[in-house]
Amino acid sequence: MIYIRKIGSVNAQEGEELDVKAAWKAVSPKMIRRTDRFIQLSLLGAYEAIGDSALDKNTALYMASGQGNLAVFKRLRDQRYINKQPPKPVDFINSLSNTAGFYVAQFFDLYGKNLNVSRQGLVVENTLLLAQVDLELGKEEQILLGGVDELQEPVSFTKRTLGVSDETLLGEGSNWMLLSAQEQGSLASVDVIKKQMNITGVKEYLQGVNSASKLAFGQRCSKEVIDEILDGDAIERSLYHVPCGFYETAALYTLNRFIKEGEGELLFIDNFGDSFRLIKVNLL
């Protein structure tokens, strides 16, 4: 179990125009040059969590993304295949996924570990589990963990590549939490259940979860999966649902919203295919 000291979110849904550049320029006019929208979105979310307060320089930075900075890749692709030109050096640098993390570290003056990780499904759960292990083992004292995904046009194409239905509303977001092994001054505790589970395992696990705990489901949990889990449960559960457009790291938005406005305990259940991961959050 680890602790959440600070949270911050930027979140928007398909159709909402999020002027990331203007918002970031208001925070840091100096750090606009060479940064693109994905990088600015990363910075803005981290700033929502940390603001102008100073972070210990050894704070590690774990940044996760489902899709990564696809926009810069598309620029490079068009440059190569349509304009028949070599990549611009700044675009090339920005196409390296860890460049966003570089700018976040530069802004907060960090020189600790700086990771950029991704995964096909359950990216938040796996990244959070790594952070939990590193804090529990004392490998790190404090970790700034973020999930960033940018909405890609055209949405019809993006929906197909994400494997979601045409009716699903897409979203984008940059959601961050400052994690610590120490309880003092924390907002909440968080525990990623280390055991991997299938749906049967989830149902068994639920039998030991007390009735006051709220349940939330990840965006990839289908209605059938949710019904199967709830129908097999002896307790009438109260559900926590946060309206949010679809993106791969939206789980962090749900957790952050619960920490901000909820109370008590939340069990977050997420899946990708047959594979399930559970996260327990307790407000302090």
């Binding site: 060479r34 030109q85 070599p86 611009k88 050096p89 700044v90 640098i93």
Partner: peptide, 13 residues
């Protein structure tokens, strides 16, 4: 130095 590379590219294109 990164600006130098960008200018180099601008001169090319």
């Amino acid at each position: 130095s990164l600006d130098a590379l960008q200018i180099s590219m601008g001169l090319q294109t």
